[in-house]
């Protein structure tokens, strides 16, 4: 297996705070890698470094062997990495359809092609019935899904999902898990941040655990479940909560 994404000794400081501290790992082509860790562990910051919103303070990120940590978000998206935001960022006063069309233009020659990609993506993410809804008035569950749809419409090779399951009810959760499975079947590599342990254990191939900005552990779901450091830092806390 070839590494799709390599994170090499990445640190990101905010003033004196090391939000991410010397973290290294890689994501294999076609796998689902979960990034877990307590609140404030630096997971979102790491996403922001990978997709170009923050340049790393140290270290580098490679995508398919190519250095990307000096590039802007739109360039990285064009190279094939799409992301969702933990705090959803719908294009508020646009309809769901127009949101997805706007992102589908990246790989389209004209509007009708963009429209086709958008419709296909909305059907895939089960949003087609809401296509004319103004995204501002969409309920949270669907807004989370709109983030996924929009990211998919850029036709990525790799998808970064930041807590796409947070705040979903049981039914919505199942819909979303099914969508993630289908995305994997398409051959898209996924890196996912998630607090929902059941979901993580069920869908991920490998897990990287962050705590206070540092990598605490890395392994298969079974290995992570047994890791005493992880249990102490994270799972124990989650189980008590």
């Amino acid at each position: 297996m070839t590494a799709m994404l390599e994170v090499k000794g990445v640190s990101r400081f905010f003033g004196g705070l090391a939000a991410v501290n010397d973290v290294s790992f890689h994501v294999n082509k076609g796998e689902i890698l979960a990034l877990i860790g307590p609140n404030g562990a630096g997971k979102t910051t790491l996403f922001n470094v990978v997709d170009g919103f923050y340049p790393p303070s140290r270290g580098e990120v490679l995508f398919k062997g190519q250095l990307i940590s000096n590039r802007k978000p739109h360039q990285i998206c064009k190279l094939g990495i799409a992301r969702t935001f933990q705090v959803v960022k719908p294009l508020q006063r646009m309809s769901v359809l127009d949101n997805v069309i706007a992102s589908a233009f990246l790989r389209s020659k004209n509007k009708s092609e963009a429209q086709d990609i958008a419709v296909e993506t909305m059907k895939f993410t089960d949003l087609y019935d809401d296509k004319d809804v103004i995204s501002k008035s969409l309920p949270l569950g669907k807004r989370k899904r709109l983030e996924i749809a929009r990211a998919l419409a850029t036709r990525p090779e790799m998808l970064l999902l930041d807590e796409s399951f947070a705040g979903l009810n049981h039914a919505e959760l199942n819909v979303s898990i099914e969508i993630i499975r289908k995305i994997k079947e398409k051959g898209i590599t996924i890196m996912i941040i998630e607090h929902h342990m059941k979901v993580i254990m069920a869908i991920s191939d490998r897990i990287v655990v962050l705590s206070y900005g540092e990598k605490l552990a890395e392994g298969t779901p079974a290995e992570i479940r047994e890791n005493p450091a992880v249990i102490e830092a994270y799972l124990g806390e989650a189980q008590n909560a």
Partner: peptide, 26 residues
Amino acid sequence: VESKLGYYFVAIREDQDAAESLGIDT
């Protein structure tokens, strides 16, 4: 406004970070 440019303009208006993440050179 009805072309790709228009969609990109409105995307930038609605959320510049989201627009960047969609591959739009804002």
